[in-house]
């Protein structure tokens, strides 16, 4: 069970490790970012569409030659009145909608002209700037992945590479997309694992990774609980030590070492330059830091997983699983390097 848990932890971390670091890094970005900058609205200001006076009569609604509209709005665009007729629309603005703009003086269909769009774009920008280009885009639109309706894109020549997006069906400014906003959107894309440009976070890739990270956390916590139970996750307030006679298996030489009882034997021995072989660095997963003791020591799950029954019966244990306080005499086999050091 212990072995399954730790090897699951290892392989899951291999699967989600990079994405987990991306989640943490982008999460830190969202924590530290400047919200106004990141939303691209540093130079955004509202456009005044109201007319100074509206003396010219509006065409009576009964004379409009349109059936089947479900909603009608009197819309002022740069001082000129329009009837905005909605034939179909969804719960969100970005969802597909069927909307027609009609000149409220003449009653004719009058889509937003490029001239109007360019004026709105400049008025929405706080500061002196000029236009590089203006295009009516149809979905899919790179910077607005969820948008399902045509949108005007006006490129400005400022230092921050601002694109102004204007809804074709209303003249409303959807937003300023500049380099700050692009950085924010890239971070969001990374956080949402939206590597296939769905514009959202409800997709199978992130669901699989979320399940894998949940298992990674659960196996990690199980491991921590196991370590806590075997006494390797306790904070000792009073430092104490224990005299232990350590015999080297190869040379048969013994020495009495004063070992700290706060740490595992593996770590305490290392402080005295007695380096036991290990791949995992004291995690109980490689089974290399074997020691021998004549005393009756408890058997921990990693030992059950890594040492054979006969070895356990003979008195072999793993140094990373026991504290110095548990023993008085042990036999160790050391690394070549530590033998040299001694």
């Amino acid at each position: 069970m212990f072995k399954l848990n730790t090897s699951l932890h290892k392989w899951l971390s291999l699967l989600v490790g990079i994405q987990l670091l991306i989640w943490l890094g982008t999460g830190l970005y969202f924590n530290l970012m400047d919200h106004q900058k990141a939303s691209g609205s540093v130079h955004l200001r509202s456009v005044d569409h109201n007319a100074a006076t509206h003396s010219k009569p509006l065409m009576p609604l009964s004379q409009l030659a349109f059936d089947n509209a479900k909603q009608l709005k009197l819309l002022w665009i740069l001082g000129h009145p329009y009837y905005q007729l909605t034939f179909e629309s969804g719960a969100h603005g970005y969802q597909h909608k069927d909307v027609t703009l009609v000149d409220a003086h003449s009653g004719d269909i009058r889509p937003l002209s490029e001239t109007l769009v360019r004026t709105i774009a400049l008025k929405s920008y706080d500061g002196a700037v000029s236009i590089t280009s203006a295009h009516l885009l149809t979905p899919p639109i790179d910077e607005l992945p969820r948008e399902e309706n045509p949108v005007w894109q006006v490129k400005l020549d400022d230092a921050n590479h601002t694109n102004v997006y204007i809804e074709a069906s209303s003249g409303a400014v959807l937003g300023h997309f500049n380099d700050d906003r692009r950085l924010h959107d890239l971070m969001l894309k990374l956080h949402f694992m939206d590597y296939f440009n769905t514009g959202g976070f409800n997709h199978w890739l992130i669901i699989v990774f979320a399940i894998a990270s949940l298992l990674l956390s659960m196996t990690g916590i199980t491991w921590l609980v196991e370590r806590f139970k075997s006494g390797q996750l306790r904070i000792m307030l009073k430092p104490s030590s224990q005299q232990v006679t350590v015999t080297d298996q190869a040379t048969a030489q013994s020495s009495v070492l004063t070992l700290s009882t706060q740490e595992t034997l593996f770590d305490a021995l290392a402080q005295h330059n007695v380096l036991l072989p290990s791949n995992c660095g004291g995690g109980g997963t490689c089974g290399l830091c074997r020691i021998h003791s004549e005393q009756a020591l408890k058997i921990t799950p990693p030992e059950q997983a890594r040492l054979s029954k006969s070895k356990l019966a003979e008195g072999y244990r793993l140094a990373c699983q026991h504290k110095a306080s548990e023993v008085t005499h042990i036999t160790v086999r050391t690394n070549k390097e530590s033998a040299k050091a001694q």
Binding site: K10, S13, L14, G17, L21, F266, A270, L275, L276, P277, S278, N279, C280, G281, G282, G283, T285, C286, L288, C289, N335, E337
Partner: peptide, 18 residues
């Protein structure tokens, strides 16, 4: 954790406890 995973998955040499 990434270092530990790298070490356990890709590095099989036994001189770990330095």
């Amino acid at each position: 954790g990434a270092v530990l995973t790298y070490q356990r998955v890709f590095n099989t040499s036994q001189a770990g406890a330095k």
